[in-house]
Computed example of a mutant assay.
Amino acid sequence: MRRRPDDRRRRFPAALRILLVGLLLLLSGVLACRKSPEASRAEASAAPAVANPIPSGVPYEITVVQKERFPLWVSTTGVTTLDPTRQVVLTAPQRSLLRSIAALGERVPKDAVVAVLEPLASPGLRVEVRTPIAGLVLRPSARVGEIVEEGGRLLEIADDSVLWVWVRIYASDLDRVRPGTPAVVSVPGNARTFSGVLDLILPEVGPDRVAQGRVVLRDRPGLPAGLVVDVRLPVGQREGLVVPREAVVFEGTRPLVARVRLKSDGTVAAVEPVEVSLGVETDRLWEVTGGLQAGDRVISKNAFLILKARPGAAEEGDD
């Protein structure tokens, strides 16, 4: 059936109204999605901030794990002693009254007067006793006012410019060290070190499977005799994956490091504890034999504080 022209004119306004309603709905949706700057800032301030994995105020450093050549050491302990070949005992030349004597521990130069005697056979005569070497006064054997017999011991002078250290060398290490090996000596709790040479290994191993070696320290190290010291003997080098000693934190017997993941802008995105397997320890490094790969990043300063501050650390420590 053919439609009349007036029917088309009546339907056109209705179609136009539908189109306009659709446009209005679309426009209202777009406006609803747009926010004013004030509203955006308000929402941002209300949103929870992303937690910083590094505690506030804790300085830290990040180190890239890599392979490095490091020294191998035989570590042991020893006891200092004076060189007995550099000691002299001074005696009275005749029966005398002791008028004066050097004090214990006094440092005296060569040819210094260390005692004055008055022979009983020659009252009023002054006899001086001089030291043939420079050194420290040890073990005075007489007191002022006492009678000393001829040949009687007065005191002992020790040249302390050279010091010996008798060290323990385990049988398992005897094939790794030999006379002439350099030695590094240190006092526990003191950062200062002393350089010496292992010059003798006694050809005898005791029941405890330990031999005695002698390290010689020269140039007046200033250490007292009878002091227990740490001794390290270098025995070579090897290459391995290493981290700074400060990067390793022990939770009980578990060695942990704080591995770091960075954001694209270089800031810290996350810190995670990683248990590692350790090899050789040096004065500044730990060898890592498992748990890390070359290129990993770890916290190398205040790692202990950062790991302790992580969520759940207290519960893990209680376990």
Rank of each mutant, 00 (worst) to 15 (best):
L174A: 05
D175F: 14
D175M: 13
R176M: 12
R176Q: 14
V177Q: 06
R178C: 04
P179F: 09
G180P: 05
T181D: 08
T181Q: 10
P182I: 00
P182D: 04
A183W: 07
V184Q: 11
S186I: 04
S186K: 03
V187T: 03
V187K: 02
P188S: 02
G189D: 08
N190L: 15
A191I: 13
F194W: 15
G196F: 06
V197Q: 09
V197F: 12
L198N: 05
D199H: 09
D199V: 13
L200T: 14
I201L: 15
P203R: 02
P203D: 07
P203W: 00
E204W: 09
V205R: 07
V205Y: 10
V205H: 11
G206E: 09
G206N: 14
G206F: 11
G206M: 07
P207D: 15
D208M: 00
D208P: 02
D208C: 01
D208I: 04
A211T: 04
A211N: 07
Q212E: 13
R214F: 01
R214P: 07
R214Y: 00
V215S: 01
V215F: 07
V215P: 02
R218N: 11
D219L: 03
D219H: 11
G222D: 04
G222H: 08
L223R: 06
L223E: 06
P224S: 12
G226P: 04
G226V: 00
L227D: 05
D230W: 13
R232H: 02
P234F: 01
G236Q: 10
R238A: 09
E239L: 00
V242L: 02
V243Y: 07
V243L: 08
P244A: 08
R245H: 10
R245P: 08
E246W: 14
A247Q: 03
V248R: 06
F250H: 03
F250V: 02
E251R: 15
E251T: 11
T253M: 13
R254A: 15
P255K: 03
P255T: 05
V257W: 08
V257E: 03
A258L: 07
A258F: 03
R259F: 08
R259Y: 08
R261T: 13
K263Q: 14
T267Q: 10
V268Q: 08
V268K: 03
A269Q: 15
A269Y: 13
